[in-house]
């Protein structure tokens, strides 16, 4: 076999998810390489060697500075064709998903996503994934090469196996349409206040709150419980609550003793950030909401009645 792992980097670090996939790939296939695509990324190659890459391909060019997918598809497509690589694996992210999707079309190559384990069966890669909000598990395969795969965040530990990789430059030649999108600005909100990762009890508000004003009652409940308030992407994107409180794939991964979701639907990208909570409680007016599939206690009801009642009861019990 031969396997290529997409080494997504941010700033001067390769993403932990990508290194986890690299470690796993190297344990299955001694002929595992990594690919770095960006501007000023050559120095990261040694790090990739530490996590198992025998070869690191480097596409280092100013035109690749922005984290946009289509130029990366151009680079990977040429590399995979040129070297006849059989497996191409990605740690899932917003960028990696768009690269993998584009590459799938460019090479007419099958893509399996949301896999959380990999194995080799009869000399070929087989993936394990869950589906339908994790209510189903399936073994998935490919009917042709190359085989493309996206691995769910957090599936594999990044483990150092040591190694001094061969570093090989790859040519950069971009399609006209790949340069028609450009990054104008990147912003990052700094966290202030207590971190949601440290709280034992997280009271989480979703779009069901109806607006930013819905968070005040949740803050009162969280204060009564001695917990913190967390949120979903939908409400953060809408500007109702700050980004540092967001749980999920593009937010924080939390593991509190108690998670209580109010007006949260339980989308898979939210679930991956809170599924290891000790106890999950959900209040949602839609009895079919996916969150009920993984709640220890599910309440089909209106948060506008449950929240104030619960706050009053908790205060009463604590005698305040």
């Amino acid at each position: 076999m031969s396997t290529l792992v997409f080494l997504e980097h941010h700033g001067s670090a390769i993403q932990k998810g990508a290194l986890g996939v690299l470690s796993k790939a190297a344990s299955l296939d001694p002929d595992t390489a990594g690919v770095l695509v960006g501007s000023g990324v050559r120095d990261l190659a040694a790090q990739a060697g530490q996590y198992g890459a025998k070869t690191v391909y480097v596409a280092d060019d100013p035109s690749l500075a922005s984290p946009l997918p289509q130029p990366r598809v151009d680079v990977l497509a040429a590399l995979v064709r040129d070297k006849g690589l059989q497996n191409v694996l990605f740690g899932a992210s917003v960028l990696a998903s768009d690269v993998a999707g584009g590459l799938s079309a460019r090479l007419d190559a099958g893509l399996n996503w949301d896999m959380n384990d990999l194995e080799v069966r009869d000399g070929a890669l087989v993936g394990k994934r869950s589906a339908l909000g994790d209510t189903v598990r399936a073994d998935v395969g490919w009917t042709a090469e190359p085989r493309l795969g996206l691995i769910r965040a957090g599936s594999f530990e990044a483990t150092q196996s040591g190694g001094d990789p061969a570093v090989e430059d790859v040519p950069v030649s971009l399609e006209g349409f790949s340069t028609k999108a450009e990054l104008v600005e990147h912003t990052q909100e700094e966290s202030t206040g207590p971190s949601i990762e440290d709280a034992d009890i997280l009271v989480t508000g979703g779009r069901g709150l109806g607006g930013p004003e819905g968070f005040a009652p949740l803050e009162e409940l969280a204060a009564a419980l001695g917990g913190a308030v967390a949120s979903t992407r939908a409400v953060v994107d809408s500007g109702w609550y700050p980004y540092p409180t967001q749980i999920g794939q593009t937010g924080k991964v939390v593991s509190p003793k108690v998670y209580i979701g109010f007006g949260v639907s339980g989308a898979i990208q939210h679930k991956v950030g809170m599924q290891t909570s000790q106890v999950i409680i959900a209040v949602n007016k839609d009895g079919n909401a996916p969150i009920f599939e993984f709640s220890d206690l599910g309440v089909v009801g209106d948060l506008n009645t449950v929240v104030p009642q619960l706050t009053a009861l908790v205060k009463e019990r604590k005698g305040s």
Partner: peptide
């Protein structure tokens, strides 16, 4: 170019309780 090879049982999260709010939720 992809195929589903087989289905397995999902890991169970243990007992779950689901109730309708009748004023006592």
């Amino acid at each position: 170019r992809t195929t589903v090879l087989g289905l397995g049982e999902p890991p169970s999260r243990g007992e779950t309780i689901k109730i309708e709010d009748e004023g006592d939720a």
